[in-house]
Design a protein around this nucleic acid. Structure first.
Length: 614
DNA sequence: TTAGGGTTAG
């Protein structure tokens, strides 16, 4: 309404004659018309109004006016559907092409950046720009490179990199930093990012953050932390965004001491505790084993987003504190925060890790009925996991069979059913599904490992050997189990049978001593866990070489009595290590916190927080 | 008159 009134007013104010549109640009009347259009566009907020203004622009003969066109492009970014309209106006399929310059294109890119699926459009108009011989300027490339980053297309990125060099913008800090970022977002691009980073003569906190974030994203967390240390040596001060990436890397490593140091560093340096920084800090504390601190930080936040809530819910879930996680989810809903699909994954996994089957079923229904969130494969995965872990294997199978056709069960879902069948003794079923999986996905190592473990449990050693031979033949290698531990701010990694450590002899002596002590307390080795056709004594020996036991022995040697021990495993904890760790916690009076691939186990006085349910 | 790096997920 308002726009229509304004248009009438403007039309009356400017007496349109056939002669004035031909007036030179600086004529007062023309400037009045131009200014009128600009202010109309300023107050425009609907597509209808925009189309009316468009007609007005044409009527006034301002379709070639750079100021008006640019304003038109930027206005269209403020509400949905308008950008498409604007781009058809700016690039008509027939008729003469209006005026274009780099600034106009940049304005369009900025408008695109605020919408979804903006990347292909940005690249399309970047190509248009080149086709019309409009030279990009230094402001153009960050938009274009970000579009490449969003698409994760390395080849495309490289070709744009070529243009950056050609137009001479490689030395511009913004452009170069976005190049680093772009390469980090493309699969296999970190090496290219490093090259750009390495060639940069001036690196500011953004350059460092982009590279640190890149390493953190690809899971090279140790390198990310290393780079952060180097950044400090070089005298570049990290800001809150740098800290978010370092915290993510620290969370991945499970390095609590480092995490605590990062927290105090933020305090000491007075780094702004943005909402994102707090979220990253919550996630870090939860993943480093101190979920209470994560909750404390969460409670202390003034403004919490869905990410803050989800981070702490997922944190509690990982630690097996499912009831608290569920209560927090309910509290969030009560406070009027709309849960999203990730929040539902969090709450469903909380139910799964704590055996809250009925609660999980309720949330799964609630998600679609109350929030219209269509369950994705991940949500189905959570449900299958929930049912399988609870031993409801048949129900899990029925659930998979009832899945809508558009959400086909993936290998992960089948694997969680196999694991459950394996644990609950449904070996025939597990064997059938594993064979099918190998047929469908012949290069995935865990399918072979599952089948091989089933044969071992059935004591079919010849079959088991055949599976291993098949793996060798295809060149498939099992991911070796490893355990990390942080001692005196240093990370140490152990693999099974590791002899590379300086204290090698003492560690193995300690492992032997541990074995004797826990046996005296009632521990019986779970030799069926050793899936080799060897005699019982050798099997026991193989169990004692597990990386987890080596790391615990090293911790017992290197830390004062009573100190908690925290370790991080790359795979799920095996049954025997789980049992042995319970005894170690009792005999040596140590709290032992183990993070495995799925969750945390807090061992204290012979018991585990997972209540042997994992 | 325009531009750069970040957090939650089976």
């Amino acid at each position: 309404m308002q726009i229509t009134k304004l248009l009438c007013f403007a039309a009356n104010a400017i007496t349109i004659t056939s002669s004035w549109v031909q007036l030179p640009p600086h004529t007062t009347k023309r400037r009045v018309a131009e200014q009128t259009c600009l202010s109309l566009l300023n107050s425009c907020n609907t597509l209808t109004a925009l189309t009316q203004i468009h007609a007005f622009i044409l009527k006034l003969g301002l379709h070639n006016n750079p100021l008006v066109l640019t304003k038109f492009a930027s206005t269209s970014s403020h509400f949905p559907d308008a950008i498409h309209y604007a781009s058809t106006f700016l690039f008509p399929s027939n008729g003469p092409l209006p005026f274009h310059d780099a600034f106009l294109f940049n304005t369009l890119f900025r408008a695109f950046a605020q919408t979804h699926d903006s990347k292909p459009k940005t690249l399309h108009f970047y190509n248009t720009m080149l086709r019309f011989d409009v030279s990009p300027n230094k402001f153009t490339y960050p938009f274009v490179l970000k579009a490449c980053a969003g698409l994760g297309n390395l080849r495309l990125g490289e070709s744009v990199h070529g243009s950056v060099a050609k137009f001479g913008f490689y030395e511009d800090a913004h452009v170069r930093n976005t190049l680093v970022h772009m390469y980090c977002c493309c699969e296999g691009g970190v090496g290219f990012a490093w090259k750009v980073f390495d060639e940069s003569s001036k690196r500011d906190s953004v350059t460092w953050s982009a590279m640190i974030g890149g390493y953190a994203r690809v899971g090279d967390s140790a390198r990310a932390v290393g780079l952060f240390r180097e950044m400090q040596v070089m005298g570049v001060f990290p800001d809150e965004i740098t800290m978010v990436s370092v915290l993510a890397a620290c969370a991945d490593l499970g390095a609590l001491e480092l995490g605590k140091w990062l927290e105090s560093y933020v305090e000491k340096r007075n780094i702004t505790k943005s909402e994102e920084l707090c979220n990253a800090m919550i996630d870090m504390f939860a993943k480093c084993g101190d979920v209470d601190r994560a909750v404390e930080l969460f409670r202390g936040m003034e403004v919490r987003s869905i990410v803050s809530w989800t981070s702490v819910i997922v944190g509690l879930a990982m630690h097996g504190r499912g009831l608290e996680a569920v209560m927090l989810f309910d509290e969030m809903v009560e406070q009027g925060i709309q849960p999203d699909d990730v929040a539902f994954i969090g709450v469903l996994s909380a139910c799964s890790h704590s055996g809250l089957v009925d609660k999980g079923r309720c949330y799964f229904d609630f998600m679609e009925k109350s929030y219209g969130i269509v369950p994705k494969i991940e949500h189905y995965g959570c449900m299958v996991d929930l049912l399988s872990r609870a031993g409801l294997v048949n129900e899990a199978l029925e659930f998979v069979q009832a899945m809508p056709v558009e959400v086909k069960p993936n290998q992960i879902i089948w694997r969680s059913i196999i694991t459950a069948c394996h644990a609950r003794g449904h070996l025939k079923l597990a064997k059938g599904i594993s064979k099918e999986l190998i047929r469908k996905e012949p290069m995935h190592e865990s399918n072979y490992v599952l089948l091989s473990n089933i044969y071992a449990k059935l004591r079919r050693w010849e079959k088991k050997t055949k599976v291993r031979e098949m793996m060798d033949m295809k060149g498939i290698k099992k991911v070796p189990g490893s355990t990390m531990i942080e001692i005196n701010n240093e990370m140490y990694e152990f693999v099974a049978g590791d002899k590379s450590h300086d204290l090698n002899k003492q560690i193995y002596d300690m492992v032997d001593e541990m074995g004797r002590e826990i046996k005296r307390a009632g521990y019986v080795p779970t030799t069926s866990q050793v899936l080799l056709d060897i005699d019982e004594e050798d099997k026991e020996d193989a169990l004692y070489r597990h990386s987890e036991k080596l790391a615990i022995a090293f911790a017992l040697l290197s830390t004062p009595p009573g100190t908690p021990i925290r370790i991080v495993k790359n795979l799920r904890v095996c049954e025997d290590c789980h049992c042995a760790t319970k005894f170690i916690s009792k005999v040596y009076k140590r709290d032992i916190v183990v993070r495995d691939r799925n969750r945390f186990h807090h061992f204290r006085n012979g018991l585990c927080s997972c209540r042997d349910f994992w």
